[in-house]
Design a protein around this nucleic acid. Structure first.
Length: 197
DNA sequence: CGCTAGATGAGA
DNA sequence: CTCATCTAGCGA
């Protein structure tokens, strides 16, 4: 099945991050539904890497919408992000949690865990479960390779917005989006700011 | 349950 | 020095 094209990532980052909820991430033999995302804006957002890192600003400048941005956090966790640009603002979207769908045995083996709910319930967990490392950095999610995103199947999806997890600067923006009531998210919604879609 | 410490590497 | 994390281990 054909994956999402660059158009999907050529909108506003906040809009795009919401619309990623409910899409299916295919990564080789494994796949899962995106149930949690966070938006980071390349301007006026101190939590975004572009705020302090020239190399990230260069990445945004030279890549197209849908480019994969991966970095190592805390020395051991790879973070999967997607580039959004082409509208009036650009940004990066962190994929934070998936509801596992296929390749579950493989995910369990890579994670060394058996509990389904905990396989991809966090940005570091999901990259471990899917074997995502920086060798995918700067590739595209839109070229219909073994790594792609399938559109959301249904129109009726409840998405909740609240504040982003684990940051200290620009911490009050409600730019974390989760699938309402999903047991597969990383951290329970604490103070919902809005109900969307 | 909840809370905390510590592992570990890249960028600035 | 900081950092968009995770887990084991501890105490209640």
């Amino acid at each position: 099945m054909k994956g999402l094209s660059q158009d999907f990532f050529a909108t506003d980052p906040l809009e795009c991050a919401q619309h990623l909820i409910g899409t299916t991430l295919i990564w080789g033999r494994c796949s899962g539904v995106v149930v949690e995302s966070e938006a980071y804006l390349t301007e006026n957002d101190e939590a975004c890497h572009t705020f302090k890192r020239a190399s990230t600003r260069d990445f945004v400048a030279r890549n197209e919408p849908g480019a994969i941005y991966i970095y190592l956090n805390y020395g051991m966790h790879w973070m999967l992000n997607l580039l959004v640009k082409g509208g009036s603002r650009s940004g990066l979207i962190l994929i934070r949690a998936l509801e596992p769908k296929t390749g579950i045995g493989l995910m369990k083996a890579r994670r060394g865990k058996e509990i389904l709910r905990g396989l991809c319930s966090g940005p570091g967990k999901l990259t471990q479960a899917l074997d995502i490392t920086n060798r995918y950095h700067e590739m595209s999610i839109c070229d219909d390779s073994r790594c792609r995103l399938l559109p959301c199947r249904t129109e009726e999806i409840a998405v909740v917005a609240d504040t982003r997890i684990g940051i200290t600067r620009s911490a009050d923006f409600p730019w974390r989006f989760t699938l309402a009531e999903s047991p597969f998210v990383s951290v329970r919604v604490r103070n919902a700011k809005a109900r969307l879609r």
